[in-house]
Write a protein that binds this DNA or RNA. Structure first.
Lengths: 229, 229
DNA sequence: GGTTGTATAATTGTATACAATAATACAAAC
DNA sequence: GTTTGTATTATTGTATACAATTATACAACC
């Protein structure tokens, strides 16, 4: 029951109009509705979303900071998007960062948080058996988010949450491959055990392996499918 | 002469009014002018900086995304700042990320970029001998920025640039301790050699050690001085 | 004294107006 | 046919107006 209110950036600003606009455009970029090179015209976005320019502009400025668009003075914002190489790089970086997160989480996690983690894995197991990929991915994300939180490190949490969101589509693709879902579940169960055994070395090692496997699985994808990202 | 126009986020948006406002407030937070818990009143910032609310609001939204302020709907933005623990965490994360950056840079760096790197180290040596800490830190930053660029990885570049900016004040403190400047110079020279020898293993190892040393140096600081951060 | 209610002020949220800049179209010149 | 110049349009930059929300002050009440 504990930290159900502490959620990631993306969810947190869903209350404000500006926040929703930001999330919308960000997903539109990540999902390829706006492709690299496209220019984001403020008035067009206004009409499309039924809001004024102010929240649109604020959202664009945030996207600019994130590097998802490049904004040229007096000319406007052109979409940068994230490339296949960016995603590969993110996975390589995550190999070490997720490991660190698991270590720190193991050192600092509370009993309540362990319960939540267990709960997430159980639900993931349930939906893995049901073969419900959407729900399954939801609890996969939740598992990782809980570890970020448990690490009690704001910089780490922030960096990993952003990265995790960026590679969401890649994960989507990855979960489609036969057997992958079951492997992910097994790996999560092993990591959970290491954490609840309070074994940081093991937790870090297993998590590193886990992300490495995800990375390998992604790279082995059909290049044409990957292009769709 | 090459990539002198490719600079980090913070410098890039100094053209636009909004960009200057953002940089200003960000530094005011990092330098402690606005302390954690303070609330940023838009109209007050307007008067202070002589601009209208629009650029102020856009800047605040960016700070919100960065996590430097927390914005509560209809109530406004309160300063979060970064804690001593955040800085410690950033250093621990940088130990591995800077290592990766150095490895990737070594694998991908161009001859032009090596020249620039050499140039930066030479200027750093010059100002180390002159004991000009401000200039010295400028070329210390440049050295790292050039490595980020040379890594050719947008996600890595982005993450490390942000972190590097956040710990600027901490570095300031660190460079004040006797002998540190000379050690930093020696370490940079060794890293430069490894990179121009195209030895990724060595470059990564030396860079990891370099950040570790910086981290140790920081932690050994007088806790009272650290509190001033 | 403390609490509650209400009027006022302060502040943010959103939309829009106007100015400045850049893009476009099209005619005139060569 | 290509280029140049100019008028028009589109778009962004900045400021401001108005609405909605929240904070504050202060009196009335218990």
């Amino acid at each position: 029951m504990a930290a159900n209110n502490i959620i990631n950036d993306t969810d947190a600003n869903l209350n404000s109009l500006q926040g929703r606009v930001f999330t919308q455009i960000q997903n539109d970029i990540l999902n390829g509705k706006y492709e690299p090179g496209d220019s984001l015209i403020e008035t067009r976005l206004c009409e499309e979303m039924g809001v004024s320019r102010t929240p649109i502009r604020e959202a664009i400025r945030q996207l600019e900071l994130e590097g998802l668009v490049q904004s040229i003075p007096n000319k406007g914002a052109i979409v940068n998007g994230i490339s296949t190489k960016d995603i590969d790089d993110i996975y390589k970086i995550r190999i070490v960062l997720e490991g660190i997160a698991a270590r720190w989480a193991t050192e600092k996690i509370t009993d309540d948080e362990i319960s939540e983690l267990k709960n997430a894995v159980e639900l993931q197991e349930f939906y893995t058996q049901k073969n419900d990929i959407e729900q399954l991915m939801k609890y996969d994300s939740r598992f990782h988010d809980l570890i970020y939180e448990a690490s009690k490190s704001k910089p780490l949490m922030h960096t990993l949450s952003t990265f995790h969101h960026y590679v969401q589509r890649a994960r989507n693709l990855s979960f489609g491959t036969p057997g992958r879902a079951l492997n992910v579940l097994k790996e999560h169960e092993a990591i959970l055990k290491a954490i609840s055994d309070r074994n940081p070395d093991e937790a870090e090692k297993l998590t590193t392996e886990h992300v490495k496997n995800a990375s390998i699985n992604l790279i082995m994808q059909n290049p044409e499918k990957r292009k769709q990202l």
